[in-house]
Amino acid sequence: MSAFVTPTRTLISQAQLARPLGRTAYWTVFWVLIALFALAFLFPLYWMVSGGFKTPQQIIQTPPSLLPTSPAPGNFATAWRDMDLGRLILNTTLYAGGALVFQLVFDVAAAYALSKLRPVFGNGVLFAMLATLMIPTTVIVLPAYLTANDLPFTHWSLLNTPWAIWLPSVANAFNVFLLKRFFDSIPTELLAAAAIDGAGPLRTLWSVVLPMSRPILGVVSIFAVVGVWKDFLWPLLVLTDTSTQTVNVGINQLHVGVPENVFVAALAIASVPTIVFFLFFQRNIMAGLTAGAMKG
């Protein structure tokens, strides 16, 4: 006797989709919404890139034009040279890479401990970490700055050093939550089998858990890199030396006296590394975010 399977209920029933009028209306609405959402997300990017090709007069004209009448690709070379974008991007790459390494090491260890090792008061620690997500970033900027300027006990100053970017980025409660949610979906039987074979917790994490966690590690990598690359307020406070500034802070400091079209071209160049990084890991986004829903 076959089991009775209840069909999934949706806004539109299968009977309505089977009718030509219902099917046509459904796909029309579907593609219209897809086009509107794509336009809402891609148009600002197009506007920025096209603005880099415009002349100074065209970029400030009213009403604005969608296409550059006389494309000037030299604006990008001027922005790269005059605003020292090579150094700024190199600095930001260093900060983003270090933040990525530190987050993968410490956040993975914290999530693994909370998920599989089950320490005493682990749920309380997780609750306290998630509670920090409810605190606005601007509220903790001043205490964080005072701490970075004068570390407790050691009295070291982290200002104008990569540590001022790396250390605060490690305490990422959202990434810990994502990783723990994924680790919870890994069957306990796999860890028990590894323990029977003589693997300790660290060996189990390295040989069993991490190979299965590539999707969520890709998601965390995207969040770590993009979070550092787009941040402005914190680097503005702790990186006052022009030789250590990130690309966002450097462009903000150097854009005075620069034509608007060259400034927009610099913004377009600064966005390229994160777009490339996103495209490289884009397959892992949905896989990682939905993997925690799997049942072992």
Results as ranks from 00 to 15, higher is better:
V5H: 14
T8L: 14
R9G: 08
L11C: 12
L11K: 04
S13E: 09
A15Y: 06
A18P: 11
P20M: 09
L21I: 09
L21N: 05
G22V: 05
T24Q: 14
A25P: 02
Y26F: 15
Y26W: 14
W31Y: 15
W31F: 15
F37H: 07
L42N: 10
F43Q: 12
L45C: 11
L45I: 15
Y46D: 10
Y46V: 10
W47K: 11
T55C: 11
P56L: 07
Q58G: 08
I59T: 07
I60A: 11
I60Y: 01
T62G: 03
L66V: 14
P68E: 08
T69P: 03
N75E: 04
A77V: 13
A77W: 13
W80T: 06
G86T: 14
I89K: 00
L90D: 09
N91K: 06
N91S: 05
T93P: 02
T93I: 04
F102Q: 02
V105S: 13
D107G: 01
A109N: 07
S115N: 01
K116V: 04
V120Q: 10
V120S: 11
F121Y: 11
G122E: 05
G122P: 00
N123Q: 12
N123R: 13
N123S: 11
G124P: 05
V125F: 14
A131E: 01
L133I: 08
L133E: 07
T137A: 13
T137N: 12
T138M: 12
V141S: 10
P143V: 02
A144R: 10
L146K: 08
L151V: 06
P152V: 05
N160S: 05
W166G: 02
N172F: 01
A173T: 07
V176P: 02
F183D: 01
S185M: 10
S185H: 15
I186W: 02
P187T: 15
L190W: 15
A194N: 05
A195H: 06
L202H: 13
T204V: 03
L205Q: 03
L205R: 00
P211V: 06
M212C: 12
M212R: 15
I216V: 15
I222E: 01
F223Y: 14
F223A: 08
G227S: 12
W229M: 00
K230C: 05
L236R: 09
L236M: 15
T240C: 03
D241P: 08
D241S: 13
D241W: 05
D241L: 10
I251Y: 06
N252I: 02
G257N: 07
P259N: 07
N261E: 07
A266G: 10
A266W: 04
L267G: 10
S271R: 06
S271D: 07
V272P: 01
P273L: 07
P273E: 04
I275K: 06
F278A: 11
F278C: 09
N284W: 08
T290W: 02
T290C: 03
G292K: 04
A293G: 13
M294A: 15
M294R: 14
M294S: 15
K295I: 07
G296T: 12
